[in-house]
């Protein structure tokens, strides 16, 4: 085997790992935001219904 194999191997591995790490961070941020949006929507609805009740 070529003694430079490890250079080739690490270059490709780093790209793949980097790519998936980036995807994971995007997915993670997406998930957090989706949860927050759900919470906020509930809060808005609650506030709106309260206001209607008052009116």
């Amino acid at each position: 085997m070529d003694q430079n194999f490890w250079y080739l191997f690490s270059a490709y591995t780093l790209i793949w790992v980097g790519l998936f790490l980036y995807l994971f961070t995007i997915a993670g941020r997406e998930k957090k935001l989706a949860e927050e949006i759900a919470e906020l929507k509930a809060a808005v609805e609650e506030l709106e219904s309260k206001e209607e009740g008052r009116a």
Binding site: I26, E30, L33, I37, L40, L47
Partner: peptide, 19 residues
């Protein structure tokens, strides 16, 4: 994917302001 994420962030920001 990244653009969708940014739009989600805008939506959250918008909701936060409404609340």
């Amino acid at each position: 994917r990244r653009m969708a994420l940014e739009r989600l962030r805008d939506e959250a920001e918008d909701l936060r302001e409404r609340v």
